[in-house]
Design a binder for these strands. Structure first.
Lengths: 118, 118
DNA sequence: CCTGTATTTAACTACATGGTTAATTAACCG
DNA sequence: CGGTTAATTAACCATGTAGTTAAATACAGG
């Protein structure tokens, strides 16, 4: 596994079970049992998914009697959103038009400077 | 591997070499050789990374003589950005305040309706 | 036609992942 | 104390990933 933080985050998100767990935690904290309920999967399997999410900093866990309540920790998702936004101009048409417009302005500015130079 | 599209995208992004390749392609198309240059890694290794990116729909490849020029295909990144944005309220404080404000408005609206009902 | 260049395929290694079941730890409760 | 419930650890299996080197394919050009 590539161990930089963004890679760990992406790797953790590359599994639908783990994304479903995050979606559930967006509604509030939950125990491991709660989180297991929707899945046709053993307890230990869910436990492993939670460890992956924890190591990626996407969840935090408490301790209450025999329960280990999980809660969402979304800050790594901010980095994901920002990373993806860096490519917006490649999918957003209006952004591309804006980009082209800015490029146009810049070019005109350069032309004018050249004009003044004479 | 979980084969849904979003999982494939996240899995492809979970490697710094592949993200670096995308960053390079953001500046324009490139051949496999071009893309290999920055990495201390054999040609076949890069070829495999490109196949992962291609299967995730993040790049497209052409054919020109003996070169297979790659270009960025960013639409899957739109899905990533949108997915992450769904969690913005968990990292963005001002968004939380806005959220709370909206909730407040909604509640007041409900209270007013109840008042009118009498 | 032969040679060099670009790229992929094949075969292999080492290790990570996602799942299983069985055993273990930890805490509550009668 | 003993039983039940929650959760993790251990051991195991199958598959996927990230890299290697060596061989195969495809094309350009003298």
């Amino acid at each position: 596994m590539a161990s930089d933080s963004l890679s760990a985050t992406f790797a953790a998100l590359a599994d639908p079970t783990r994304r479903a767990i995050l979606a559930r935690l967006a509604e509030g904290p939950a125990t491991v049992k709660d989180l297991s309920a929707p899945f046709a999967m053993s307890g230990p399997a869910v436990s492993k998914h939670l460890r992956v999410l924890e190591r990626a900093g996407l969840i935090a866990r408490g301790r209450e009697a025999q329960w280990r309540p999980c809660r969402l920790e979304a800050t790594p998702l901010k980095a994901v959103a920002e990373w993806a936004e860096g490519y917006r101009r490649f999918w957003d048409d209006s952004y591309e038009r804006l980009d082209e417009y800015l490029r146009h302005l810049k070019q005109r500015e350069k032309d004018e400077q050249r004009g003044e130079g004479r």
